[in-house]
């Protein structure tokens, strides 16, 4: 027996009201629990400043990084030279060349940007990638990683890399040489750069230095700004460049971080599971009522047909 249109309308209204109420509670709880959803820069955020105008492409940083992190140099494409074509599971930092037909060139050093609100950490199921609350360094912990590679999908800079061969894969990315940091040393790459094109320090100091350089050399740096101050919610690795940022592989995602921009409603709707619980209550109540009718109907059927009632 079909329900009448009126009953349907009533059902939808009551049910809808209940769901909306739970949704409202959920959203309110989110609002209360997180006073603002904008991610904050950690108090002692460490960072790097890379100035593409100073880099000469000597690649000492690549070599030093490989050595300091105990990686084997990537000779897969060229047996004589360590010549990776991109970041990969042997290469945590790389120098690439942007070359235009008219002769404009720039080197670019790529590695993890240690975002203020990292998409990779937001994606990681069990916290394999975690951002340190104090220094903001994003590190990978194999104990919690299941190798789902969601971090690779989420990172707007295509940084985390996976070991695709063999049985015990890992995610490999720059971690600011966390072992060296623990000993009070700087990351290997910033220590060996002959031109001080990449330097290490507190993010706020590096921002000041970058702005000082921009002010001292008006017109030298692209758009007279430093990349990473606000982009994608901010990154702890900052870039100064004389060529447009997208030419050296830095996307322009706007000033909201990916988790902030895209997971807002997920957070609100699932907050404390209030909405799902509300939905469950409404559905259970409805089905209970309909089930009573169905039970009676089943009994009648069984009697009439002589065949076992099917639940």
């Amino acid at each position: 027996m079909e329900i009448s249109r009126r009953e349907l309308f009533q059902k939808i209204t009551t049910g809808g009201a209940a769901i909306a109420a739970s949704g409202g509670i959920s959203a309110a709880l989110t609002g209360v629990a997180q006073a603002e959803e904008t991610p904050q820069v950690p108090p002692h955020a460490l960072g790097m400043l890379y100035d593409a105008t100073l880099c000469i492409g000597c690649k000492t940083c690549v070599v030093a990084c490989t050595q300091a992190n105990g990686l084997t140099p990537d000779t897969r494409t060229d047996p004589l030279h360590q010549a990776p074509a991109d970041l990969n599971n042997h290469t945590k930092t790389i120098i690439k060349l942007y070359k235009e037909a008219d002769g404009q060139t720039s080197f670019v050093k790529q590695q993890c940007m240690h975002c203020v609100d990292p998409a990779c950490a937001a994606a990681c199921m069990f916290g394999g990638l975690k951002k340190d609350k104090n220094t903001g360094v994003v590190t990978w912990n194999g104990k919690y990683c299941v190798g789902c590679r969601y971090c690779e999908v989420a990172c707007p800079y295509n940084v985390p890399k996976f070991r695709w061969e063999g049985f015990n894969p890992e995610i490999v990315k720059c971690e600011f040489c966390k072992d060296r940091l623990a000993k009070g040393q700087e990351p290997a790459c910033t220590t060996v750069c002959p031109r001080k094109a990449v330097i290490f320090g507190l993010r706020e100091d590096l921002l000041k230095e970058a702005k000082r350089r921009i002010a001292a050399n008006p017109g030298k740096y692209h758009e007279d700004r430093v990349f990473g101050e606000h982009e994608g919610g901010g990154t702890q690795v900052l870039y100064l460049s004389h060529v447009p940022f997208d030419k050296i592989g830095l996307p322009q995602p706007g000033n909201e971080s990916i988790p902030q921009k895209y997971l807002k409603w997920q957070k609100r709707l699932y907050s404390y599971l209030v909405l799902p619980a509300g939905l469950y209550a409404v559905l259970a109540g409805t089905i209970r009522k309909n089930w009573k009718d169905h039970e009676e109907h089943l009994e009648e059927e069984e009697k009439a047909s002589g065949l076992r009632a099917q639940l």
Binding site: A122, M125, Y144, G147, F162, N168, Q266, K267, Y270
Partner: peptide, 21 residues
């Protein structure tokens, strides 16, 4: 890639609640 770590599935206090996956 590392299915042996799926046991964290049973440790809810270690979940990253915001991860859609």
């Amino acid at each position: 890639g590392r299915p042996w770590n799926f046991y964290w599935f049973f440790v809810p206090w270690h979940w990253n609640y915001h991860s859609p996956l």
